[in-house]
Design a protein around this nucleic acid. Sequence first.
DNA 1: TGATGTGAACCCATTCACAGCC
DNA 2: GGCTGTGAATGGGTTCACATCA
Lengths: 229, 229
Amino acid sequence: MSDTPRRKIPEAALGRLPVYLRILVDLSAEGTGQVSSEQLAELAAVNAAKVRKDLSYLGTYGTRGVGYDVQFLTYQIQRELGLNQSWPVVIVGAGNLGQALANFTGISERGFHIVGVVDKDESKIGSLVGGVRVKHADELAQIVLSKSVSIGIIATPAQQAQDAADALVRAGIGSIMNFAPTVLSVPRGVNVRKVDLALELQILSYYEQRRNNGLRSVPTGEQSGPVSA
Amino acid sequence: MSDTPRRKIPEAALGRLPVYLRILVDLSAEGTGQVSSEQLAELAAVNAAKVRKDLSYLGTYGTRGVGYDVQFLTYQIQRELGLNQSWPVVIVGAGNLGQALANFTGISERGFHIVGVVDKDESKIGSLVGGVRVKHADELAQIVLSKSVSIGIIATPAQQAQDAADALVRAGIGSIMNFAPTVLSVPRGVNVRKVDLALELQILSYYEQRRNNGLRSVPTGEQSGPVSA
DNA sequence: TGATGTGAACCCATTCACAGCC
DNA sequence: GGCTGTGAATGGGTTCACATCA
């Protein structure tokens, strides 16, 4: 009803909205004003029917016989994703990854800004990463509270990830992005997303192994191959 | 057949195998020899039936009434994922992210090793990251060939990601992990996986927005956010 | 006419529930 | 008795195909 759909979007469709969004922003930069589901599908490397169904969860924003207005659709997706506000984010862990994340311009360009980076390691405290000074992990709660942070990023080693999660939850954070290779245990209601590099590589490894089995011999000399008693 | 299942594992199940694997490795380190589907499920935060079905794709490796042998199951998962060999990996892009990835110990600890890092930026060439010297992007094909690399990681800015992909494919690589916020276009048969930080954050943002809507005052229909002035 | 929006069909993934084996 | 392995049931996601409307 009305034009603010509060029904929830299926997880799978939700995961594609940011992809469409980015494409729309690019199209807009090129001066494109209208786009069809077919074109969007092409650019996002998915099926056109899927695009239409995904977008239909937002509301009825297309024009039959014409397509979608790029600007308008951009706005609607942003609003639905909550990107019409800039979310303050705190990063736990100032190692390689934490620093890379803090310095990653894509974050601030897309609706988020880093308001704090904390670490337990005294030698890192005080250094400047991503425009903020690294503070001690003990100050986490204080930062979360004073800056009304609701999204936390865990970029610690695996051993400290659960502690970091606990601290974030205790501080009142509602959503966690976990870069540590651990399954976090958090109370019901806290959103967690996991990004795991090694895990993704291992999946690639599986497909690559299959590719090679049909085509060529084993890539590395390391070992005799997948089969061989 | 029989003992070596060459049928392909469903994508969804495949994505969970590395999670089980990591848990098994941890269990083994603690000296645990046997594990039940129930315990594994608990640790992986999934349903026990799912664990059993997932593992059943590998073969019949459990013992009814007892559970799974940790060592043996570990080996079987590793073998199925192709992790009984160490895959050489090349990284394109030596910026913040590329450096963080190259220095990430989790990679080398889990069946992969970095054999090359390339960049177009002259100022980066020659510097040492992750134990290897950064070379010019022109040398990519030569590295891929001489080291039999089949997995490439794209850690460039969005604008250069497609070029990087093209170069990797031309050099004969079969699998690509894409960290750039772009939908890559590659020939059929090349495996691509995308890891997109901003995209994941935007999904969190959606859930966080919904959380706030039910619980606290809305971050204001228009903006003003959780912070407000 | 041309492209959206969507019921219906299809397909894959998850979960159930129990037969089978230790 | 206990726990795995798996058919069968369920549920979600994708795709089809067409009614609908600018």
